[in-house]
Amino acid sequence: MRIEANTDVCIGAGQCVLTDPTVFDQHDDGIVMLVTKHPEGEAAQRARDAVQLCPSGALSLIEEPSEV
């Protein structure tokens, strides 16, 4: 599983950082920054939650079956 962040639509609400700061962070201007694109274990589940919670649709998941 890989996460993609579309920084053009991020609105800096910080929902993702709140969900898992080991996966998501924010630049000083508030825009999302991925700490890792490939979270594992519980972090992977939380990253999935973050994608659902993100209000702007900035986050997406790309399943990479070979890696699971």
Binding site: I11, G12, G14, V17, L18, Q26, D29, G30, I31
Partner: peptide
């Protein structure tokens, strides 16, 4: 809206808060 919001967003980051 995006422009106005982006100008202000950095003031409310999780780290700053």
């Amino acid at each position: 809206h995006a422009q106005a919001r982006r100008a202000l967003m950095g003031e409310f980051t999780v780290r700053r808060m």
